[in-house]
Design a protein around this nucleic acid. Sequence first.
DNA 1: TTATTTAATGCAACATTGTTGCGTTTTGCA
DNA 2: TGCAAAACGCAACAATGTTGCATTAAATAA
Lengths: 129, 129
Amino acid sequence: MSIPRNTKAKQAVLHEISSSDFALSQPEIFERVKGACDRVTVYRILDRLVTENKIHKIVNVDGTINYARCTSCDESHMHAHDHLHFSCIACKKIECLAEQIVHVNLPASYQIKELFLTISGICPSCQAT
Amino acid sequence: MSIPRNTKAKQAVLHEISSSDFALSQPEIFERVKGACDRVTVYRILDRLVTENKIHKIVNVDGTINYARCTSCDESHMHAHDHLHFSCIACKKIECLAEQIVHVNLPASYQIKELFLTISGICPSCQAT
DNA sequence: TTATTTAATGCAACATTGTTGCGTTTTGCA
DNA sequence: TGCAAAACGCAACAATGTTGCATTAAATAA
């Protein structure tokens, strides 16, 4: 296993993801770090950050791939996605509904890898406008 | 609103989706109706079949868009997706876990549009092999 | 500080998936 | 059978993601 390096481009990408309050797509991230590095490099950095467990790869309800720093878990352990997420179709923000735990009771013959529990709709903030 | 027509290409596409026991992507469908029509036509047919409520558009856990005929609901009403789905990463089949109803208790300030409740993993059949 | 190793990058080229415009064909119906 | 428009084919374009390879730069050791 190779030793990861902390490059300027990597820092820039991680900074954009960290400072955004909603999950970003690769094109959005590339736009925000404009000039810092090549388009291809962004893809490779994102892959690395995911394997290093620094960021989460999120599949949105429309199929777009977004990346976010999960605020409710530290980096040392896998995040338990046993709770619901709310994906606002207006502002695109994805919110963790941590208190809404989903209990899954499947036969042992099912080997569970990951849970994708997302509700799409309009969040309170966008509702108001 | 335009009146839909029953073309040969449309029949072919619908037949492939109907006879498959798992959701198919556009490339898979195009491959299976090979020669029946153009690549672009498949896209347009799929869009039409979705608006006509003949098929369902499904976003898989990996972000790919798949199409399927939903067996557990007739065509005249919207399907209630308040139950869990199991998506096998080996055989790609998506199963409805109809008995696993998820009760969502969100504040009224959230306007819910759709639920995406999918578990990814390995299904019993693929487990055995 | 400098040298060394190899992780990371840039660039070009390619692949896949999806969209748009437009002229032509075909379907459903009068 | 004739007609309106739904559907189609084709070409071109657009967005997103991947691969190969020569070059650059980060981390560590000398």
